[in-house]
Design a protein around this nucleic acid. Structure first.
Length: 475
RNA sequence: UGAGGUGUAGCGCAGUUUGGUAGCGCGCUUGGUUAGGGACCAAGAGGUCGUGGGUUCAAGUCCCGUCACCUCAACCA
């Protein structure tokens, strides 16, 4: 076989993880590049991952009483400028529509980079009374941020996401909602993506433009860098005041509501690829895998083989397994590698020898182990295997992450830690100057605050630490 | 914005130094033989060499301009 097969190329560049990542997502046909810089076209196999993520998350939102709605793509410029910090934070990266209908517009329209402002303006009209609260809504949409550098899935100029927006009568209730959704994200990442995350509050420097407090979940990629995989924001009354979200309370007083927002995006696809991928390609977590099992017939021209494969496929599909039967003309070896690269959790091999023995071979993608299974119990075996793979993927990713969280008592130790591909836990006095110093010295940022009560000292200035921080280099 | 690099077939590249018929691998098409870890044989299709101008008998190759993209730096919930 020639040198430039996918697997060999990937193995060759295994040391350079971002390059590996780009190659894999393109070669497994998850995406193509769009005509506008930094845009991507998500191909069906990649989009199927998103649909599965969406289905799982949507169920969790519904269970939390959140309804789906949809708000406009274009936001009047004047809406954006109503909240001072918000406009300052997003101004550099918004795309603006200045012309429409063949004429210059009196007021430019911003293509939403996020929808706090337009949703806030509607909430201002809808909410009158404490009886209207809480308002719990979510929208599935595309947003655009004109980034200077882009990377498939992790940072694209247009991306798909969900953004939840809620309004509450009290500060306590809004904060509770913010933390509740953070917990929903963590549980979703664990059970559906098999992805361990660190959750916690963000520093002032890293928080969302316009928020009072931001909380995030951070995932560790194979190369030790951190990826912000989701955030929830407690917005206080900042947006309520900017958009007149007021209600008449039980005591007869007119009060401003307290709002929250939270979101995860197609970046999650990048996160799961980079958490689980190995040098053979993708390793899909079973719950969101577009294809959970693939059947590869062996010597399919022999009598009975294809029939048996089709029969098995039907039984698996009836049991709710997302299954594909690869009837293409390629050789079995080619199919093995192809589906392995696409990360399909379970591969079933079925040939004449198996049929005679009433058995089939199954190989699992996470450990690459292969074993014999009884053909008449294949459906149960696949279901059990999928569950086990999901749990094993989470456990091994978690063990990998925990092994690479190190402590640092000095800037030098912190630098050595992040250079070795670790998350570094260290004390921090809470001041911006020390946070900036870490960035300058170690090219690492504070990912999450981890424990507010600590007896440690600040890794930079040596004063009493206000909190412990996880520092890491980040995507 | 600073520095460097690349544009040649769907993809990856050679050819440019020294100007002389447009090449290689993969992929694709057709037919056949194969089949438990990326099979083999044979025959094919596919390119105004990013773009505009110049030099020359002759330009992928030399000269000038221009556009796009990539990497690093910077920037970036």
């Amino acid at each position: 076989m020639a040198k430039d097969t996918f697997v060999e190329q990937i193995a060759d560049i295994d040391t350079d993880f971002p390059q590996w990542y780009t190659d894999v997502v393109v070669k497994t046909k998850l995406v193509d590049y769009g005509p506008v810089k930094g845009t991507m076209v998500i191909r069906p196999y990649g989009y199927a991952i998103w649909e599965n993520i969406r289905r799982e998350l949507d169920g969790r939102f519904k269970a939390a009483g959140i309804e789906n709605a949809y708000f406009p793509l274009l936001i009047p410029m004047s809406f954006m400028t109503k909240e001072a910090e918000h406009v300052e934070g997003f101004a550099p990266e918004v795309a603006v529509v200045t012309h429409a209908g063949g004429e210059k517009l009196a007021e430019p329209l911003v293509i939403r980079p996020t929808s706090e402002t337009i949703i806030g303006s509607m909430y201002g009209k809808w909410i009158q009374s404490y009886r209207d609260l809480p308002v719990l809504m979510n929208q599935w949409a595309n947003v655009m941020r004109w980034e200077k550098t882009t990377r498939p899935f992790l940072r694209t100029s247009e991306f798909l996401w969900q953004e939840g927006h809620t309004v509450h009568a009290s500060e306590e209730e809004a904060m509770e909602e913010t933390l509740k959704m953070l917990a929903v994200y963590e549980e979703f990442a664990r059970t559906c993506l098999a992805m361990p995350v660190l959750t916690g509050r963000k520093t002032e420097k890293e928080k969302f433009a316009g928020a009072v407090a931001t909380f995030g979940m951070e995932a560790m990629m194979h190369d030790g860098k951190s990826l912000q995989a989701g955030t929830t924001h407690y917005l206080g009354q900042n947006f309520a005041k900017a958009f007149g979200i007021q209600f008449l309370d039980k005591d007869g007083a007119l009060k401003y509501g307290y709002t929250t927002s939270f979101g995860v995006s197609t970046r999650l696809i990048g996160a799961l690829i980079m958490t689980h991928g190995d040098k053979r390609g993708l390793v899909m977590p079973p719950v969101v895998a577009p294809v959970q099992a693939v059947i590869v017939p062996i010597a399919s021209q022999k009598a009975g083989v294809l029939e048996a494969c089709r029969d098995l496929k039907q039984k698996l599909a009836a049991a709710g397994v997302r299954v594909v039967l690869d009837e293409s003309e390629n050789s079995p070896g080619w199919k093995f590698n192809e589906w392995e690269m696409k990360g399909v959790p379970v591969r079933i091999e079925l040939g004449p020898r198996d049929l005679e023995a009433g058995k089939c071979m199954m190989a699992r993608r996470d450990t690459l182990e292969k074993g014999e299974y009884a053909l008449d119990a294949a459906v149960q075996s696949v279901q059990a295997l999928l569950k086990e793979i999901s749990e094993n993927m989470y456990a091994s990713a978690k063990a990998r992450m925990e092994k690479r969280i190190v402590r640092a008592a000095s800037l030098e130790e912190l630098l050595a830690g992040v250079e070795g591909g670790n998350f570094v836990r260290a004390g921090w006095c809470g001041c911006r100057a020390c946070e900036d110093k870490v960035k300058e010295f170690a090219q690492a940022t504070a990912r999450v605050l981890d424990g507010e009560n600590t007896s440690e000292t600040c890794v930079v200035c040596g004063k009493k630490a206000e909190s412990t921080v996880i520092f890491a280099r980040a995507y």
